[in-house]
């Protein structure tokens, strides 16, 4: 019963999404094209100046475009995760109150939380796959297979943000606090978690602070997988994975709890 109820919530999201399918897929495609062209190719020409076919030694022997691609993959999925977990949740609770229509049926608040998170996982997977296809079209991956292997990591990174943000959104009266989430959490992390430049050369306290950023773990893991380097330090790779799983798991638990507290009074 419960599993099928979660599936019903997912199905509803998919039906609503179908209306905006084309526009949504197009922007999921355009976004990496613009970023990879401007940052990867454009900026990369300066970053890689003077380096040869062996790649940029400061970036571990890959071109800047290749270096950027897996990090940007995880970072883009994170940004989409934040978008999918803020206003759509508020819509269900406050704007259109659809969650209240759902809990009047056999669907429970827990089903809504889990079905919505399952849907966000599916959305992020779509975004990550399109992103990877664009990366391959740019010829920006040393190995197509390894890049595809990095997709689940990017999606997990997204869920490490989506789940706690859904939990947060479930406590809000309206969407007024959401710009702060973007301004003070996702945008700084997007810029400073090793998406665009390695943190290795930075002072030790900055490198230590990076451990607090779930996105840094996601990017580091995605990059090591995409470059086939994860095996060289499996302990670190597992640590990254554990951090992401822990945050996504705890966030899911909180999301269920907060939505129950919100809807069932």
């Amino acid at each position: 019963m419960a599993a099928s109820s979660v599936a019903r919530v997912f199905e509803h999201q998919a039906l609503v999404y179908r209306r905006t399918l084309r526009g949504s897929l197009f922007s999921s495609f355009l976004n990496p094209v613009l970023y990879l062209a401007a940052m990867g190719v454009g900026l990369g020409m300066f970053v890689d100046r003077g380096t040869g076919a062996a790649g940029n030694p400061a970036l571990g022997g890959v071109t800047y475009l290749q270096y950027l691609a897996p990090g940007l993959l995880a970072a883009t999925v994170m940004q989409s995760a934040a978008l999918e977990s803020t206003h759509p949740i508020m819509g269900g609770i406050v704007y259109h109150r659809i969650y209240y229509a759902m809990i009047a049926t056999p669907i429970s608040a827990r089903d809504i939380a889990l079905g919505t998170l399952a849907w966000i996982t599916a959305r992020l997977t779509m975004i990550a796959v399109i992103f990877a296809v664009v990366v391959l079209a740019f010829g920006a991956a040393p190995s197509a297979g390894l890049l595809l292997a990095a997709i689940p990591v990017a999606v997990l990174t997204g869920m490490a943000f989506a789940a706690p943000i859904v939990a947060f959104a479930a406590t809000q009266r309206n969407g007024e606090s959401f710009p702060a989430v973007f301004r003070f959490i996702t945008t700084p992390l997007f810029l400073l978690s090793g998406t665009f430049f390695p943190l290795d050369g930075l002072p030790a306290p900055v490198q230590a602070a990076a451990w607090l950023s779930p996105l840094w773990h996601g990017i580091a893991l995605a990059r090591s997988i995409a470059f086939g380097a994860a095996g060289s330090n499996p302990g670190l790779a597992l640590a990254h994975l554990a951090v992401l799983l822990l945050i996504a798991g705890a966030g899911t638990w909180l999301a269920v709890r907060n939505l129950q507290l919100r809807l069932v009074k």
Partner: peptide
């Protein structure tokens, strides 16, 4: 608390899916 993103008919069918 109707679903404003869906048509009238879809609203009813989707609601039926919850049952």
């Amino acid at each position: 608390n109707l679903d404003v993103d869906l048509t009238l008919r879809e609203n009813l069918i989707v609601y039926g899916r919850y049952f």
